[in-house]
């Protein structure tokens, strides 16, 4: 029989703790594939966040540093400067990157650190049980915006990718998704380009992956994807923002 699919070489045998339907697993898989395809598994250092993907280090078999909540870009900046030959990337959620870690993120971008940032935006704090994030859509219900996000109380959803695209140190900004096989292929290409840019010393590459969090959103996996297409994509428009 012809083998049409195999688990990426760098994914460990550990059972992923993610909820069924969660985007993190798919994104881990394409990150693992990109690292393997570039043949850089022995020289890649990942920085994991505090958030649902805190345990990314259990699933992709490379060097990892688990960073304090929001500080992955500061951690990665130092690692890259001390290990300039290595591939250094961060993997962060939207709470981690765009709330508590805004400062570290923007300054790493502005310094043009030669790293890749993978930004998983599910518009909610998944790990802590579905609280509102800066990225939560207007009207979206979360445990800390039970009546839906109200602009006059909470302000507006935060488009970090558009913001960092303004910074000179950033060479590549794109917004992707992983909810269909075609989108997975595109997201993988984007992550590969981000890694290649970092290795070539072109500056910081920022790949946002608009994601679903069905448990946080209190929906079925399929329902969450539909909701994402109808509500997230019109606001967080997919495609390249800066190339």
């Amino acid at each position: 029989m012809e083998k049409v699919y195999s688990k990426p070489r760098l994914l460990t045998d550990a059972v992923m703790h993610y909820c069924p339907g969660c985007s993190h697993g798919t994104i881990h898989k394409i990150v693992a594939e990109v690292i393997a395809e570039l043949g850089i598994e022995s020289s890649t250092i990942g920085v994991s966040p505090v958030g649902c993907s805190v345990f990314a280090y259990k699933y992709i078999d490379i060097d990892w540093i688990q960073a304090a909540h929001g500080r992955a870009c500061a951690v990665a900046s130092a690692v890259k400067r001390l290990e300039p030959e290595k591939m250094v990337f961060t993997y962060q959620g939207d709470g981690d990157l765009s709330a508590i870690g805004t400062g570290e993120t923007i300054h790493a971008c502005n310094r043009g650190e030669n790293i890749a940032v993978i930004y998983v935006n599910n518009a909610i704090y998944g790990m802590t049980g579905g609280q509102m994030a800066p990225t939560t859509l207007v009207g979206m219900k979360t445990s800390t915006s039970p009546g839906g996000r109200e602009v006059n109380i909470h302000g507006y959803p935060f488009k970090v990718a558009d913001m960092v695209a303004q910074l000179e140190g950033v060479c590549y900004v794109t917004r992707q998704s992983v909810h269909t096989p075609a989108s997975v292929r595109k997201a993988k290409k984007a992550i590969r380009l981000a890694f290649e840019n970092a290795l070539a010393g072109k500056g910081l590459s920022f790949v946002e992956v608009v994601s679903s969090c069905n448990s946080g959103w209190k929906m079925s996996p399929v329902g969450a994807n539909e909701w994402m297409e109808q509500n997230m994509f019109p606001f967080y428009k997919l495609g390249d923002i800066k190339v």
């Binding site: 540093i65 960073a67 500080r71 500061a74 951690v75 130092a78 400067r81 400062g103 570290e104 300054h107």
Partner: peptide, 26 residues
């Protein structure tokens, strides 16, 4: 030796955390 002016002490210490993770003197 790398010398970097960080954006805050929060960033500095987390840079130290990252740097120390490489086994170097930071």
């Amino acid at each position: 030796m790398v010398v970097l002016q960080a954006e805050s002490e929060v960033a500095s210490i987390n840079m130290v955390y990252g740097g120390a993770s490489t086994g170097k003197r930071v």
